[in-house]
């Protein structure tokens, strides 16, 4: 697990209100920091110890997250949460497939607990390029009704790519719903497969949020992506506020990083006023 850092903070107010799929926004660099963007991190789990703790997992890949990784116990942390739209839950017991890429899978374990409390079946797929980038393989094995690890090079679990293997796994697990979290390319592939099979798919945009978010609370509109609403119109919605969990088939995956011509407010938008995002 050398690739990632896990950190537990005492934050009763966050722990109490947390619902699976939500994230926290952490200020990095200390009081006189020169790093002004908050780091948005999915929550791994909350516990009731010490009044309420929150654990999250991250990769120390920039000065801000390296600062975070160097915190020691009893250091104070400036953290806002829980933020964003949680995973919608099945009303009735269902067979649920949880697909996590790299450390994005950390955001699926709280969901797994909640689903199991609702008598759902929980099947895990954990994917990463190499063995050391797979997060939570042991936990998934312990709490999942099944668990499949996929690495590109076969260094852990099955060798291969998620798009090739997922249809078979959906079949075997008789999945009624797919939840996915982590890298954008994975979410895009999973959404495509689920929607082709007519299975509802909820994705949590962990990587997109960590790449584009500045505030995490919806004030800056830095984290937008094109999403089709119930009315069929495309809007630029904020991953931090309307997401991070979105319906996979509603995201215009091929148009990420663009303003689609027909998006509301875009170059060739239908002239209707912008409504609140879906």
């Amino acid at each position: 697990m050398a690739a990632y850092h896990a950190m537990t903070v005492v934050a009763p107010a966050v722990a109490e209100r947390f619902r699976p799929g939500q994230f926290v926004a952490v200020a990095v660099g200390g009081e006189h920091t020169s790093l002004l963007a908050r780091r948005c991190l999915p929550v791994y789990e909350v516990k009731s110890d010490y009044g309420g703790t929150v654990e999250f997992v991250f990769e120390a890949d920039d000065p801000g997250s390296r600062w975070l990784a160097s915190r020691r116990s009893r250091d104070a942390l400036d953290l806002i949460g829980p933020l964003g739209r949680p995973f919608p839950l099945p009303r009735d017991p269902a067979s649920c497939l949880l697909v996590g890429g790299a450390h994005g899978s950390s955001g699926l374990f709280a969901l797994a607990d909640t689903l199991r409390q609702r008598d759902c079946k929980v099947h895990f797929v954990l994917a990463a390029p190499h063995a050391h980038q797979v997060y939570g393989a042991l936990s998934a094995q312990r709490i999942g009704d099944s668990s499949t690890v996929i690495t590109r090079d076969g260094s852990l679990g099955v060798a291969g790519m998620v798009p090739d293997l997922l249809p078979g796994i959906i079949d075997q697990t008789e999945a009624d719903v797919v939840y996915a979290a982590g890298p954008t390319s994975l979410l895009s592939a999973v959404s495509g497969i689920a929607s082709a099979l007519g299975i509802p798919c909820q994705v949590s945009l962990g990587e997109l949020l960590s790449r584009t978010a500045a505030c995490g609370i919806g004030v800056c509109a830095s984290c937008v992506l094109p999403v089709v609403g119930d009315d069929g119109h495309t809007r630029m919605v904020r991953a931090c506020a309307e997401g991070p969990v979105l319906r996979g088939e509603r995201v215009r995956w091929g148009d990420l990083g663009t303003i689609p011509l027909d998006a509301l407010g875009g170059p060739r938008a239908p002239q209707t006023p912008l409504e609140a995002a879906p």
């Binding site: 801000g64 830095s222 407010g265």
Partner: peptide, 16 residues
């Protein structure tokens, strides 16, 4: 009029 704004990335972090 409504404006969708620019594509991402829209904000970059720079020193302070």
């Amino acid at each position: 009029r409504p404006r969708a704004g620019r594509p991402t990335p829209r904000i970059a972090e720079t020193p302070s």
